[in-house]
Design a protein around this nucleic acid. Structure first.
Length: 548
RNA sequence: GCCCCCGUAGCUCAGGGGACAGAGCAGGGGACUUCUAAUCCCAAGGCCGCAGGUUCGAAUCCUGCCGGGGGCGCCA
């Protein structure tokens, strides 16, 4: 809105100054420092060379043009620094933001449509169905689910999928380990030695097929664990079903027929080196068994066959080397490289008792996602995973997390929401209703705290869009913490229902709080964190007890 | 040896071409006759790993080093 108007004004000014060709995009940003105005453009710096003028001179001409016929809310246009054009606006543009937030509401504000209905398959977690989910799996669960939420808000149609590697060597080793424990024996050397195997073996009915029973047990366990984080998969895709349907064999035949696969040394190879990989890779071993690669290619072909235009796979960084060979296989089937996008996340390191707990299900010493959720609750657990970029490694020290769970940023944000609800409830008790927005004197909102809330709310649309484009949900986490901070500051400095506050100002502030509530709910919903109406888990008494 | 990620305040991390680099936590000092102090405010804390390069402008992009993590199988 405001941004488009300013950019249009800049474009018109550039044309008026005889600059051509006009730049394809004109950047407009919010300066870090208040004295640089509300909005700022570097367009004079960017265009100066092509326009044959000094940046500050060009900026000055632009400022003159715009000042002659300023867009709505523009109070002053000035040149600053090396040649920035800075816009100083009146507060009205922020009052417009309040109106936009309220008009859009939880369902309509900060939505985008650039996804254009594209069907996107997002595959995440996909841990082998041979045991409960490790803490690290929670990172992928929280990330993938939130990414889907954000994509949906931008017009994509996301589909949450979990790929079950439900056949092959790992499943066999898992079943053998269950059988061994059931008989009171040690699992095989390369089997699963973690404690849960013994527990599950004890649950397993006599005469049960260990592989089938264990598979179902693990599948259910994983589904329950992610459900506690609010994650529900649309599809649990089965590798075994893919093999049994003949899809894997069909893909192999297609690859061989097209010459993308060839036989050598008794094995069947994919010409992945042609597709950007370091070297060719084995599809079928010389003993006739397929490697993981072949079913994976078939699986991704299957996703496309199901109508998805884009596949986003969320992988741990330890699978990094696998990306190019899979892409080579997918492309060898005639698909475009852009249809497969791999998001690599750095692994979670789990600490317990001062030592690193291993991730391997086989080695034991497992720290489960359920353990973390038991310890801090689903909201804090999910927020913890969403605090950081996937690019940086995350260390979760269970001892620290437990000790500091009350300091988790999630409560800071939830408290802001609870305060707004409490404010609304008190207003209702006192019979103070919010009149329709167009009858409210929003121009009374001019306190820096009030304006900061509105400025932050304005940014939400950009934050959501950026988070979707960059596959970076943590940007939303950062934003919602900012909004909560802005609201807490407002709440502290700007009384609403106090007797010395004039009714017109009180209702304007009530509407401001409502707008903040809408922003908080949008972001918390996207993050998959609850927005409670009151905070009950910690009373002041508990604080004192906790301090003892 | 090659490939990917990271290195920013004491700690955990944002920022990933734009102006004087931010937040939380820890530590120091202050604010509750209240709409919930799970809050707010002030002060302090930085060769943005190092060295070059590109640019009007580099924490940000490029190259090379150093340090940490991960990966380079007819394993999964």
């Amino acid at each position: 809105m405001i941004r488009t108007h300013l950019i249009d004004a800049l474009r018109a000014a550039l044309a008026g100054c005889g600059v051509e060709p006009l730049p394809a995009t004109i950047e407009l940003g919010r300066p870090a420092h208040a004295e640089h105005g509300d909005w700022s453009s570097n367009v004079a710096l960017v265009c100066a060379k092509a326009a044959g003028r000094r940046p500050r001179d060009l900026a000055g001409e632009l400022a003159e043009h715009i000042t002659a016929d300023p867009p709505a809310h523009v109070r002053q246009v000035e040149v600053a620094g090396p040649g920035f054009v800075n816009f100083h606006l009146d507060d009205g543009w922020l009052h417009d933001v309040l109106r936009q937030v309220v008009a859009g509401g939880v369902d309509g504000y900060a939505c985008a449509d650039f996804g254009a209905g594209m069907a996107v398959n997002v595959e995440f977690v996909s841990a082998n169905p041979t045991g409960p989910l490790h803490v690290g799996g929670g990172r992928w669960a929280a990330y993938g689910d939130t990414l889907c939420n954000i994509l949906a808000r931008c017009g994509y149609v996301p589909h949450r999928e979990y790929y079950l590697n439900d056949r092959g060597r790992q499943m066999a080793a898992f079943a053998e380990s269950l059988v061994a424990r059931k008989q009171g024996a040690e699992p095989p050397e390369d089997g699963y030695h973690a404690d849960y195997i013994a527990e599950w073996a004890a649950e397993m009915p006599d005469g049960a097929d260990a592989l089938e029973w264990g598979y179902a047990r693990a599948h259910r366990d994983v589904a329950d664990s992610v459900a506690r984080l609010g994650v529900r998969f649309d599809t649990w895709a089965s590798e075994r079903a893919l093999v049994q349907s003949g899809a894997v064999a069909a893909v192999l035949a297609t690859l061989e027929a097209s010459g993308a696969a060839y036989r050598a040394d008794g094995a069947t190879w994919l010409r992945s080196a042609d597709g950007g990989d370091d070297k060719d890779r084995v599809l079928v071993r010389s003993d006739g068994e397929p490697t993981y690669l072949l079913p994976d290619i078939a699986y991704h072909a299957d996703k496309l066959a199901r109508g998805f235009e884009l596949m986003i796979d969320v992988w741990g960084a330890d699978h990094h080397g696998y990306e190019e060979r899979l892409a080579a296989g997918v492309c060898a089937l005639g698909n475009r490289r852009e249809q497969l996008e791999i998001v690599l996340g750095q692994l979670v390191t789990v600490m317990r008792g001062g030592a690193e707990a291993k991730i391997s299900k086989r080695a034991g010493n497992l720290v489960l996602l359920d353990d973390l959720v038991d310890l801090v609750g689903p909201d804090a657990a999910r927020m913890t995973f969403l605090l950081q970029s996937l690019r940086s490694r995350q260390t979760i020290d269970l001892d620290v997390v437990a000790a500091q769970s009350m300091e988790n940023p999630v409560f800071y944000v939830q408290y802001a929401h609870a305060r707004i609800c409490s404010l609304a409830a008190t207003a209702a008790e006192r019979g103070i209703a919010r009149p329709p927005l167009d009858e409210v004197s929003l121009e009374l909102l001019g306190d820096p705290r009030e304006l900061e809330v509105l400025r932050t709310l304005h940014a939400l649309g950009d934050v959501v869009a950026d988070a979707a484009r960059e596959r970076a949900p943590h940007k939303l986490t950062s934003w919602v913490r900012e909004l909560a901070g802005a609201f807490h500051g407002f709440y502290h400095d700007c009384p609403v229902l106090r007797s010395d506050i004039d009714p017109p100002l009180a209702v304007a502030r009530l509407w401001l709080a409502e707008a903040a509530r809408i922003g908080l709910v949008i972001a918390l919903d996207l993050l998959g964190v609850s927005a409670p109406e009151r905070m009950e888990s910690l009373s002041p008494d508990d604080t004192e007890e906790a301090a003892e």
